[in-house]
Amino acid sequence: MEKGQKVRIGGIKFSEELVQVTVACKASDDSSIYQLLHLLAEKSINIPFLCHSAVTSIPASSFCVDRSELGKVQQILNFSSFQNEHVSFISSVGTLTLFPHRNSCRLLGLLMAFFARHDFPLHSLSTSISAIALNTEYTLLDAVADKLQDVLELPLNHAPFRQGFRLTQIQP
């Protein structure tokens, strides 16, 4: 691929409005993320995005939940076990999912530089089997997708996909 040439992708999908929570531990052997995930599951809170790392001196986990779950998540984090952790919230986050990523370092680097150049916050990202999910401000999703067309080539007449329905798992 020539330098400067647009990268071709198949499509863009937007999430609903989410909250991103980051829990950074104070000790390298801290395993409170395991307890946190368990408590979130007990409260039937879905986590559509999670990235976790424990390879540096500060194990940290960032995850997203639906904005309506914020109160329940805050209740859990007020639980004594998490008082010593550094917890931060980003209150209005949207996930921009681009597919396919083709495992391409070029696409990844281009996206990182793009977000920085245009002052679009990039809160977190993770790849899946074929897509790359990037978390930014929810209110900026349209602006990011619009500007991305400067560097990405999308199918003709493409419009970002917004899921018009929600799936909710109900505990019997």
Binding site: A24, A60, L108, H123, L125, S126, I132
Partner: peptide, 13 residues
């Protein structure tokens, strides 16, 4: 290197 298997990115602070 041509391809990655997985990428994650986030901020501890």
């Amino acid at each position: 290197i041509k391809r990655f298997e997985l990428v994650t990115y986030h901020a501890a602070d």
